[in-house]
């Protein structure tokens, strides 16, 4: 495929057509923070930490770089007061769930996020979906999935599959940005107390 030339943080960067802005930045050695991104998985666009500012046709807007395709002559900024403010806010929201996550603590330092900005929220899961998507897309086992929606959304292992498959795999654990606490916990819970098949 032909290359597309765009500008990231003042640098001319070439990227293959169809690549994302995040891909292009990474290839050029420009670091954009991410939580839910994984190079072997389809773009998800859930954590929004990778927001960058785009300038095209005189308009500025924020987009998630992990899901935004490169376009010719795109002008991208990966840091600005606004971007930093948004990232700080996002990290603060996630710290309400997982205040002791190493990855989140690093990000908090970088963006000056206050771990007590918001009231603690139940569960350490930050819904990055890495475990769910890895299990479905790479392992094709579907042993863990999401249930419910909005603020009640959770990850949940299916005991029937998990009891068969998970003991020998556990490849999703190290992907978890909350230090695999949540996946491990939910798996153990599902195996120890399997719900009746008809309920969640």
């Amino acid at each position: 495929m032909s290359d597309v030339t765009l500008q990231i943080d003042g640098k001319q960067v070439a990227a293959p057509a169809g690549a994302t802005v995040l891909d292009a930045a990474s290839a050029a050695g420009i670091v954009i923070p991410t939580l839910c991104h994984h190079e072997r998985l389809a773009p998800f666009g859930g954590c929004r930490l990778c927001v960058v500012e785009l300038e095209s046709r005189g308009q500025h807007r924020l987009v998630a770089s992990c899901a935004h395709p490169v376009e010719p002559d795109l002008v991208v900024r990966t840091r600005s007061d606004k971007i930093d403010r948004i990232r700080k806010s996002l990290v603060e929201l996630l710290l309400a769930h997982a205040p002791d996550s190493t990855r989140l603590k690093e990000l908090a330092r970088e963006y000056g996020a206050d771990r007590d900005r918001f009231e603690p929220a139940e569960g350490f899961c930050v819904h990055c979906g890495l475990c769910v998507r890895y299990c479905a897309e790479i392992k094709k086992l579907h042993a863990v999935g999401f249930i419910d929606r909005g603020i009640r959304k959770e990850i949940s292992f299916l005991p029937e599959i998990a009891s068969r498959e998970c003991a020998g795999c556990k490849e999703c654990f190290p992907l978890c940005p909350t230090s695999y606490l949540q996946a491990a916990y939910v798996l153990v819970e599902a195996l120890a107390f399997p719900p009746p098949p008809s309920t969640r």
């Binding site: 769910v132 579907h142 999935g145 999401f146 249930i147 299916l158 969640r200």
Partner: peptide, 12 residues
């Protein structure tokens, strides 16, 4: 269809 998706839909 994987059961994980059915459960997501049934609760979504």
């Amino acid at each position: 269809v994987p059961m994980s998706r059915i459960r997501h839909i049934a609760t979504f």
